[in-house]
Amino acid sequence: MPPLNRPLRLAVALDGGARYSASAFAERAQLAERGAFDFITLEDSLGQPAPGVGRLDALAVLASVAPATERIGLLPTVTTTHTEPFHLSASIATLDWVSRGRGGWIADVSTSEADARLIGRRPAAPIDELWHEAGEVVDVVTRLFDSWEDDAEIRDIATGRFIDRDKLHYVDFETATFSVRGPSIVPRPPQGHPVTAIDATAPHARQTAARYADVAFVRTQDPDTARAVRADLRERARAWGREPDRLIVLASLSVDLDASADAVALAELVAAWHTDGAADGFHFRPRDAERDLRLLVNGTVPVLQHRGLVRHFYPGATLREHLGLPRPTNRYALAREASAR
């Protein structure tokens, strides 16, 4: 087996089980944290997930989980289609602040006419257009993160200035569907850019994921599919001028475990996929929120730890550190320094 210089990344979905209780979410998150998962995810949608079924705002839920946990990353799904990009940026930055550098988001689109009528601003648009727009939203959201340089706050008593306004920047971002002036109302978050993830299973989402995402999910139960999509994403990322290793591709597996033996078998399976280069890691979607998560933490993870494939603990503090992603430099600081030379 080739030595792995990169640990296998592990994430787990918190969906299912009690849907409206903050303490139930916190308990599940704490359990996942005991398994040293890199991050947890929570799905969301603008409308009801199924007729007559409700759900809470996922970003709010994971914000409430933040003080109940210490290390685990927090990735809610956030839809971009009917929301103000300015608000999204502020909410995601705030999730990163309240979790001290563990925030991120899974950018998604709202495609249905029913969702469009909930907001009443514009009709449903073709999915390719929506994913193109989602890319623009991710772009402006991260520009807004950068609109404050890290050291903009100076508290300079001599000049009476709280901030150095030369280190705050307008983003002046304009597309066919929105424009944002900036700067953000929230200082640059602890991670610089909270982690952006996109479900790249559908071909429509792939280009946007390759261009903008730090983490891409591929929903499949088949290693060949995972490998092919990963290769496609890396190729596209390279074409966008990105370092492909900065795009972490996770196979997103639906798991349904009946007993510890299943949990161990799952460990064998993912180890094999990883060795074959099918994925950089795995995102487990438990069928039964409580039971499967327990089996993953008590059965699957220990086997992977024993084989040296995953960490036993969190050596870093931020989600970027868990994932081995560097803290991004600030584009406006770079530009300002370049023009000052």
């Binding site: 970003l59 914000a63 409430s64 502020a90 930055a93 705030t94 309240v98 979790s99 109302i185 929230v186």
Partner: peptide, 11 residues
């Protein structure tokens, strides 16, 4: 420079 209110309050 402030955080977004509903998210802070959720925490």
């Amino acid at each position: 420079g402030r955080p977004e209110a509903i998210t802070v309050l959720s925490a």
